[in-house]
Simulated scan of single mutants.
Amino acid sequence: MNQSPELKAILNAIPADFADPAADYQSVRKTFEGFHGHPTGSDLQITFPTYGGVRCGEYELRGGLNYPIAFHCHGGAFVSTPLDAYHFYAEIIAWQTGCRVVMPDYRLAPEHPWPAAPDDCFQSYLGLLKSGIPPSAIVLFGESCGGSLALALLTKLRDKNLPMPACFISLTGWFDLSVAGRSVEARDPFLTAQWVRNRGLDYTGGALPLDDPAVSPAYADLSGLPPLYLQIGQYDTVREGALTLGAAALQDGVDVLMESWPGMVHGWHGLVNAGVPEAAAAWKAIRHYVESACDV
């Protein structure tokens, strides 16, 4: 499958050092400032409730259905992009799925290393349940590093015998921080393998290996999890972790749908507002999956 002209133009404009393996977390934050923090439209209503003691963003489209609830663990490589610079992505989810979106403002590494971020996601999810939202009306999303946070949430819910969301949807999730397996990074301008490993080191603070199942769910016991939907880009640097996760989920008896998206790179879903047709097609498939999972 050939990449669209719109996608090629964007990829060609990405600086060659966007994911410089030598970059530290402060450099990552500075780089990401230019790619996040976009303004949102007047149709998006944003409030800041506290769920489970964690500040969250809640996003509703005026006049929209705003159902089901998308609980989104956002990206930013564990070290960057707090909630107030990520409203634009919640807006994308709301427009593309029709969902009301809840996004926890989890603490960032390295100032707050593992397990701060997954603990915040866990507590805010429980708080959302306590507010009266039934788990069957919640769709769990995880984008980029948020994929591993979302899976950590699911495994903890399972281990504590707590209510699960209806399903999980991966938006180019990181599931193996060691980035093992065949390299595809030469075709992905957004990530390099060593850059991902370095962010994993920022996140773990050296407390455990990067391939530990606690931070790399590709190696975790996945039995008992709700259905998983993994859209996997051909050239995504963290593709192998998603493939490993999907195969493990199948072996553990989980309902898993893995889709191959030829020619796609890391984070292509976020390019939908730039008119990239592959991103629009991916979101169309996601909306169908959400509507089927929650009987919308």
Rank of each mutant, 00 (worst) to 15 (best):
A193V: 03
H74W: 05
M103N: 01
A70R: 02
Q123T: 10
Q45A: 06
P104T: 13
A22R: 07
Y125A: 00
A70L: 04
F18S: 01
E240M: 14
K156E: 15
D43V: 04
H112F: 09
Y51S: 05
D24G: 08
Y235G: 03
V54H: 02
D17L: 14
P189V: 07
L157D: 02
E91G: 11
I138R: 03
R62V: 15
P49H: 09
Y89N: 09
P163H: 03
N198I: 03
F78D: 00
F18T: 04
D105C: 08
D252C: 13
T204W: 02
D295M: 05
L157Q: 03
A22F: 01
E91Q: 15
P110E: 00
L271G: 02
F35M: 12
E259Q: 15
C167V: 14
D236R: 02
G76P: 12
D252H: 15
S80F: 09
W174Y: 07
L129V: 00
F122Q: 09
M164T: 07
L177G: 06
K156T: 13
V238P: 00
A274R: 12
S136F: 00
W174M: 08
A249D: 07
A23M: 08
P277M: 13
A19Y: 10
P134Y: 10
L108R: 07
L271N: 03
T204S: 11
C121S: 04
G173L: 05
N66D: 06
G241D: 06
A13G: 12
P209G: 13
A85M: 13
R287P: 10
E278A: 03
W95G: 06
A22C: 05
F88I: 07
T172P: 00
A94S: 14
T192I: 05
L157M: 08
L245Y: 09
T204V: 14
S131T: 12
I232V: 15
Q3Y: 02
P82K: 10
P213H: 06
C294Q: 08
W195E: 00
W283H: 08
I10S: 13
G127P: 11
L157A: 07
A150D: 09
V254S: 08
Q96Y: 07
M103F: 12
A109E: 01
P104R: 01
T47F: 10
P227F: 04
R239A: 08
S223N: 12
S216Y: 06
K8I: 15
E291T: 11
V101S: 09
A207G: 05
Y289E: 09
V296G: 03
T155I: 14
D202N: 11
G233W: 00
Y229D: 12
G76K: 02
H36F: 14
V265C: 10
A186M: 11
A117N: 03
W283N: 02
L201A: 08
V265G: 01
V254D: 10
V290A: 04
